[in-house]
């Protein structure tokens, strides 16, 4: 049995009167790729953001790589280096080069010298196929390239797990493949990943497990083939047939 990297128990999240997560459990084993699907507003992003405490859960526990994220004694900034996150809208720093984006946290959080950080940063850019774009600013890069820089920014810190929140939803269709390719490489290198996405083809090819969420609960989970071909719940079936029509 592989080591558990992410262990979330009984997660609840309220936004005022809105109850967005209603008791979600999520275990992710080392090297596992867990896919999360579900209708808009079902709480997928909120769940993901609870896993690095960008969102403070109202109740429950989150342990990542043995660190209790909700313990007040935990140095959250230190812990977050182990949890990479990639956003739908890339969120690259527009006033810095690609390399600057990748090295900022290496220098300011991991305490590397500029030379060390640059070396690590260039290697990370090379891993996403953008070694030759190190000195470009985000404005000079395509959406696909920007998202790959964002992935490089996260992996440069050598995280134990990577969280992806709809990493290809903002991309033109012809650019999706390059980002999925990088994610596939990461997976092949043994990265533990939680991916919110509706890229069914990628899920089938790469996911170990698919979670279907609706209204703040995990309705059903299982291997991709089971969830996509033979869902047991009506809600899952309805959702799968709806997205396959698109």
């Amino acid at each position: 049995m592989a080591k558990t990297i992410v262990e979330a128990r009984g997660l609840h999240k309220h936004f005022g009167a809105l109850h967005v997560l209603k008791g979600v459990d999520l275990d992710v084993a080392e090297r596992e790729l867990v896919f999360v699907i579900g209708p808009s507003g079902s709480g997928k992003s909120t769940l993901l953001r609870c896993l690095n405490r960008l969102e403070e859960p109202s109740a429950g526990s989150v342990v990542v790589d043995g660190i209790d994220l909700l313990d007040p004694k935990t140095d959250i900034n230190h812990a977050r280096q182990r949890i990479g996150m990639v956003f739908q809208s890339f969120n690259l720093y527009p006033h810095m080069t690609a390399l600057g984006n990748v090295t900022l946290a290496l220098r300011k959080v991991a305490g590397k010298s500029r030379a060390e950080a640059d070396a690590i940063g260039r290697k990370a850019l090379e891993r996403v196929g953008l070694a030759d774009r190190a000195d470009h600013t985000p404005g000079q890069l395509s959406g696909g390239q920007q998202q790959r820089v964002a992935i490089a920014r996260a992996i440069a810190l050598e995280p134990r797990v990577m969280l992806f929140d709809e990493p290809t939803s903002a991309l033109d269709p012809e650019l999706v493949g390059s980002v999925l390719g990088v994610m596939r490489d990461l997976r092949a290198d043994g990265m533990t990943m939680v991916v919110v996405s509706h890229e069914m083809g990628f899920a089938r090819a790469a996911a170990d497990r698919v979670l279907f969420m609706d209204h703040g609960v995990v309705v059903e989970e299982g291997p991709p083939a089971a969830i996509f071909e033979n869902p047991t719940q009506d809600r899952t079936r309805a959702f799968i047939s709806q997205i396959q029509r698109h």
Partner: peptide
């Protein structure tokens, strides 16, 4: 945009 802070915080800043 708030995504800028979120990205920065997610890397441990």
């Amino acid at each position: 945009p708030s995504g800028q802070i979120e990205a920065a915080r997610s890397t441990g800043l």
